[in-house]
Nucleic acid binder design. Sequence first.
DNA 1: CTGAAAGCGCTAACAA
DNA 2: TTGTTAGCGCTTTCAG
Lengths: 338, 338
Amino acid sequence: MQPKIKDVARHAGVSVTTVSRVLNGEKYVKDDLKLKVNRAIQELGYAPSHIARSLVRNKTNLIGVIVPDITSFFYATILSSIEEAASENDYSLLVCNISEDIDKEYKYLNVFQEMRVEGIIIMHEKINEEIRNLIHKMNVPVIFSSVKPIDQQFASVIVDDYKAAYDATKYLIELGHRDIAFIGGDMRDITSGQNRYSGYRNALTDYGVKIIYEHIRFGDYKVRSGYEQMQELLRAKRRPTAVFAVSDDMALGAMNCIHDQGLQVPADISVMGFDGSQLTELVRPTLTSMEQPIHEMGRVTMKALLQHISSGEFLEEDIIMEHRLAERQSCIKLEQSE
Amino acid sequence: MQPKIKDVARHAGVSVTTVSRVLNGEKYVKDDLKLKVNRAIQELGYAPSHIARSLVRNKTNLIGVIVPDITSFFYATILSSIEEAASENDYSLLVCNISEDIDKEYKYLNVFQEMRVEGIIIMHEKINEEIRNLIHKMNVPVIFSSVKPIDQQFASVIVDDYKAAYDATKYLIELGHRDIAFIGGDMRDITSGQNRYSGYRNALTDYGVKIIYEHIRFGDYKVRSGYEQMQELLRAKRRPTAVFAVSDDMALGAMNCIHDQGLQVPADISVMGFDGSQLTELVRPTLTSMEQPIHEMGRVTMKALLQHISSGEFLEEDIIMEHRLAERQSCIKLEQSE
DNA sequence: CTGAAAGCGCTAACAA
DNA sequence: TTGTTAGCGCTTTCAG
């Protein structure tokens, strides 16, 4: 169907080797031949087969990416940043979106192996034993982006979750809040769940604020769970004056819940998010958030992975990105009227 | 590096042909050999090279997808639906995210050709002459999803934009609104811009509502432009009582603008969106929207494309999906107090 | 039922 | 400078 190198060669009246040479920009091809070949390529609309090239070069220029949920601002943004960096380096992305379906992850890792991707980026935190084994057997550079599964020896590109949560909590304390509720993330599969929780607790402790267990709840990083956990928090005997949710999505859920209960953000309750996704600017009031540099993180991840691929040197250490508190409208100084 | 079929054959003490046979689930292989081969595959962690297979089978199981902006709920949702359908049919996706960068589209189409993708899905409306030509030369099944570029002969999966906009406008009229502003989309590159505008105008005309040109503005489907156009609308001599924006993103921008000006949605101004993205449920007030079945559209697109691929029959006609008005909080009946 | 060998489209020695 | 040829890892006749 598609023209092949042989067709081009015949059309130009040269050997396939010559065509291959001009294709690969080698010197040692006389200009007139080069011209003829290029004309033939044009006329035939020839595009070299990546398949055949990969086979002989043993190089696919393919990166496999596993995203937990492409419809979330957070992951979508990182993905687009990864794609950008990949494209600049002449790599293409094989994207797998595993919404809830952990089997799909396994299946796709197999596809990745068959496709001989040169590297894999995982943004998913749910890694089970089976998957861990497969990854190891695959013997392909792997890097995690924005997540760090527990008990696993691959590098991650992440922020210092402990410190970020600590700083966020500290900020609320400095705003005068003492009843600071916490909506955390999963404590099992992912280190950030634990680290953010520790950061929250230690900040309270360090500043002499009493920890109220009734004010501590855990969700799954998604909007709905933020909403649900907030409902619970509003049932507490003592209503919190501020809520720190460890994802912008959960923070939005919390804001919506507060709104739906007839209360005001931030007048009645301040809300702090985590991530710094687009959401923060899209909602009203705008959401104060402990931001991760998500636009950068994708690029950094890709860069580290390509580095690993070309050098062959394992990336042992995590790459820690800077977090930054972005003040917006959803958190205010606590009125002393209380 | 990776084990090859030859290694498996040696390990199992059979010929490569036999290994190939069990790999492809052919009968005519004795059970004991089959067992040996499978064991060898296990022990070596062998995965057949998709590259080599593609070369000989002349089939890649790859689909190229071009998305204008992966960080938008609308496109992300369709993409995830496409991915789902692809995965179910053992196809993988090569994803290109062209944020603003039209050259990237051209570049990626070339990559797609080199990769010998079996089909291409385009969700981008900005198709220039160069790109149109390339697509034709590539001689690969192409289908547009959710957009229909003007002057192009490929099929699209879309809603009836004219009727959808007509129905949305009619709904506002029936709510008692007479000053219904319109924030349209691009009128040049894409048919929906024009069709939605016509639908709006004709609904007004049919119901005897005067068209106020000061109340008609055009954006680019994104949040920011909705905000900006709303600012202009609020400067109009006569303030509209309702706004119909032809994307949820622009509707959100409009809502935010209204909010930031100290006005209330829907008390002061009703806002109607278009698309039915997740956004509609995430904002407060929740957004009434003329919904496209975006979860379905991806699947339908993929299905039609695979149909085209396997049958070889060109898909000539557009596939029209049902639109549906989803009533939420952002539009209310106009008080007669006016 | 099983295996030997040709060939998919390309690159890379090796010759000329 | 150019061309011949041997694979890359697999499937698929064609024989046995």
